[in-house]
Design a binder for these strands. Structure first.
Lengths: 208, 208, 208, 208
DNA sequence: CATGAATGAGTATTCATTCAT
DNA sequence: GATGAATGAATACTCATTCAT
């Protein structure tokens, strides 16, 4: 009774894997990690249940892979900005813009990462491996570290002034960006939003 | 074989309710909403399973009540600051300090609110009532609205300058506060941390 | 929609537990450990799935408990025979008879113990705890040890001669008994079968 | 990406079959029938999954074939002993020795036959065909029948005395042999163990 | 009011088998 | 013949909720 699904293309070898990842992206984004079911993912991926477990050892590792494969290109973009010839304050705006682009695109899924995987449960909250959790954390630190680098560079150029730890300020900036996205504070023009945020973090709210 | 629990007081009627809420506070804080089990709560509350359902219609409403009863006093404190005779910029620092105090005290539980209840799941993520979710949202807006009020007042006094929407700036400030707490960026002296955050949001990171 | 099953008796507290154990006895006997499903057990026990897990931590521990509760009375019977005033050779026959009685009664279930739990799988064969497996082994050794005791006593009285280790001979006798049961070599009269086996192990097959 | 395995020989057609059977021998011996997986077998056989199903219709028939091909040579050896010119009592010891040799060699795998295939499950326990189960049974009876033949021959020569059915006695002797193997009651010298067992079954444990 | 035994819907995962290449 | 990607039926276990006592 085993039926193969209709398949016009011969080289769809890695197709199923992609279908599953795409479906997982959608389902995890909509439902969050815990409420997402493998059944819903395979239904959307138009694949069999076993197929998921051919490509991914379990639900956690599927999620992990999903994040990893979206995270790496983003890190590359950030690295590019940091390494660019821009002036420090321009880099600040550029990097804020890059964060906005990425988080707007991946808002729902990254909310899940931040909320269900990274954020919670010191004690037995999730079933995620300690190594995996550390890796998620490392990814965040990696990207936030890019903001930090730009801040430090700005300080060396004398255009940035840091009341406290650069890392903490970087986290603060990050939080403002993420909040803007998650609270839907993004206007038509992302560039404008990026500019506003930049102004805010650079000059604060105090009147001159 | 029915065992009565040791109970000297005759009016422990509302005692049970409090025991349950106290236990729920601990368990939800430790495990998050989804991983917390009613079994663990009753075990900690030293009560029967049915008793929980005498006082609370279900797990969600128990959580809801828990949050409500902790949220209201906090709102009162904020209201007090807003209504006080302080100067606007002093109010900013005072209100940031109040937020820090509250979120440090209730970090774990409020993380759960933000992450598991409010944050996630447009579609069928949680079993929370639409009304309940709206109420959680309202509470947040209520408290963040206090920041907004102070900002607006400061603007009227000409000591605050708002690049954009006051509400959005209030959310940004809120996010910086919360990030400081959740990332453990709080030093020995909370007042000092409050001051640092205030400086950051007032004057930004740009060198003069 | 939760429905309670019809229940005339008020004190059926430990009833469910017994119903489950009885059903488990039947299903494990028929299907063996691995092929037995919890679904089939609850269906036969006329109980809910959760109930099983209220009384037993998992399938393994259910099986374990089942065996334990049947094993202990048997051990008591054997102990009684060993401690009795009978003559050694009479004890041999009595103990063989007791074994036959027990194994005939519990043939199918004990086959499962011997075949699926005790017998197999040095390496990760079953999911049984090491402690549990050791306990199963201990129960067998306990009962076979009774045979051994009687043999040793007989030797001291000069009516038994042991070519080799008493323990090994006891195991051999045990195997003959078990084989008789599992191969259905039992006639109408169990006493007669016991006598035949006794004759065989006492005097062998060599002609005088 | 299709990789051909290293293969010097052109006629490896039946090689694959042998590789699979050899791997199956190892895996079934280690894990038992149910816990053994086709994946593990092909991994050890260094072959593809489909290949197994080219040679064997399913897992059961693979196991069946494995047993058959090991069983037949053993039967031949037994037949040789029965047909030999030895004296009846010598034949008894010789045949016991032959059984020991074979069961020591194949202890783990035959345990599986006895425990998982033959022994259990009157009703729907395994997926084995009725014919297959009958065949396993027939093989056992075949080999045990050899013991029986020698006993009957001995009786005709007046050196064996049978309290009861020769077949039952043969099974008893068989069970003693198998128990010795499975319980690791075999010393350095298999011949000596064979002698001990022979003594036991011929003369029993009663003192003269 | 307090209790806790009973309940069952919901879910991740395994693995023998198929069949297109 | 050889291969292995795709498949889905089968199954143990959790936990919020109910209700008879």
């Amino acid at each position: 009774m085993k039926q193969t699904r209709n398949c016009a293309c011969p080289h769809d070898t890695q197709n199923k894997r992609k279908q599953i990842l795409d479906a997982a992206y959608i389902v995890f984004s909509r439902k969050g990690y815990h409420k997402a079911t493998v059944d819903e993912i395979i239904s959307l991926a138009d694949t069999g249940k076993g197929t998921v477990y051919n490509y991914f050892v379990n639900k956690e590792q599927l999620f992990y892979t999903l994040i990893k494969e979206h995270s790496l290109p983003f890190e590359a973009i950030l690295t590019g900005i940091v390494a660019s010839k821009k002036m420090p304050l321009e880099k600040v705006e550029a990097i804020i813009k890059a964060f906005l682009d990425f988080y707007i695109e991946n808002a729902d899924l990254w909310r899940v990462v931040m909320y269900e995987v990274r954020g919670l449960g010191v004690e037995g909250y999730s079933n995620f491996t300690h190594e995996q959790r550390a890796q998620y954390e490392a990814w965040f630190n990696q990207t936030i570290g890019m903001i930090e680098k730009v801040l430090v560079e700005g300080k060396q150029h004398g255009v940035i002034r840091l009341q406290c730890n650069a890392n903490r300020v970087a986290h603060s900036i990050f939080s403002v960006i993420v909040t803007s996205v998650f609270r839907n504070f993004i206007g038509e023009d992302i560039g404008e939003t990026a500019h506003n945020i930049t102004e805010l973090v650079l000059y604060g709210v105090a009147a001159d």
